[in-house]
Amino acid sequence: MARSNRSRSRAARAREEHPELDVERLTSGWRRTEVRGGREWNVQPVSEAQAAKAYLCPGCGQDVAPGVAHLVAWRADGVLGDAADLASRRHWHTHCWRIGAA
């Protein structure tokens, strides 16, 4: 039987070369940087599916319950370095962060 010299289609190669997209990661949001009160903050949205634990919101003092979409914020310009800033991150209700309780 003769062998075909034709190359595979572009679509067939693309399916083989690229991993499947992680939809949850894409819909969970992206980390961004915001400036508040002269300080730079990293802000990372957390989706309902990713919110597995309860946290205390520093803005209102109420619980951020498991399964509730919220934000995680930490300093981006701290003097003690990135590891210390990341260790001091806090989980905020989205509303509390938006009204500027930081």
Rank of each mutant, 00 (worst) to 15 (best):
A73S: 15
G29L: 02
S47C: 01
M1A: 14
A83Y: 10
T94Q: 13
A73W: 15
A12W: 02
Y55G: 07
E24K: 03
A84H: 13
I99H: 08
S4P: 00
V79L: 12
R6S: 14
H93K: 00
Q62D: 08
D82Q: 13
R90I: 00
R39I: 06
D85M: 04
E24R: 01
K53D: 15
G59R: 00
D85G: 00
D22E: 05
R6M: 14
H18W: 11
D63K: 15
H18A: 11
R25C: 01
A12P: 02
V35F: 08
A83P: 07
A87Y: 08
E34N: 03
L26I: 03
A69M: 00
A54L: 03
R39W: 13
W41M: 06
E34D: 09
R32G: 08
R39M: 12
R98F: 07
R89A: 12
R75V: 01
V43R: 09
L86P: 06
A65F: 04
W30G: 06
L71E: 01
G100L: 08
N42K: 05
E40N: 05
Q62W: 10
R15S: 08
A12H: 10
P66W: 01
R98S: 11
A101Q: 10
V46K: 01
S47P: 10
R25W: 04
